[in-house]
Amino acid sequence: MESRTTLKTLLEIKNIETFYGLIYALRGVSLSVQSGTITAILGANGAGKSTILKTVMGLIEDQPDKGTIEFMGKRIDGKETEDIVRMGISYVPEGREVFEELTVKENLLMGAYLRNDRAEIRKDFEQIYEHFPPLKARENQWAGTLSGGEQQMLSIGRALMNRPTLLFLDEPSLGLSPILVNEIFKIIKNINSQGVTILLVEQNARMALAISDFGLILENGRFVMKGTARDLMQDKDVREFYMGIRSEESAKGYQRWKRKKRWR
């Protein structure tokens, strides 16, 4: 990792609070994403990981309730999703959300909806087919007929077609076989090395930290820990709670006392 002084803040979230109806989902979350890095948000089910991404994208109506979100120095909280996408953030939603009755090609074309540079779009098509060879073979097939892994590839490819500055990935490993997970993460790293900043939400802490520069751990709508990916991977609690690696075996086979707190 290069020295931190050269990094520039791309996304700055300050103290946002989000409600889903009456549910208090985010309880004051702050985070900044540095240009050119991969940042991973980890946490258990229901911790509010996806809610952070959805709030930033403006997908939850009238939220965030409090706090500010800045992208490249401009306030984006309260803006329409369509305008946020235009500023250069693409979001790969959880559960793929491809256009099922459009062909693979049409799906990708929709990804490039905001662009008019035909020659460049054609180049990007080639590049995406290079990243994801199975898509090329199914170019003219309805997206709904693809397998889960292929749909995930399509969903990522579609988001890339907009040439985002910042890419949000919401659980890209969900429902994929271990081999495919490996492959997808390799591609994510690859995309990042081509200059796209990535904010990743994952349950698979081991894989996520392996490719990330920074990591944050979310519990019950609050960050309880942040640091470089390397530090987090070394941390005893993270290893135990999120990676299932037990540092010391007790005679009875389970830990007999709680180390410190439970992150809240």
Binding site: E82, F99, M110, N162
Partner: peptide, 24 residues
Amino acid sequence: SKLGIAMKATQQNKMAARLMGIRT
């Protein structure tokens, strides 16, 4: 046409269409 496909996209998945920057 791009607009025509965007119309179909809007019907199939409005949220995803908005994420493509389509003003649904």
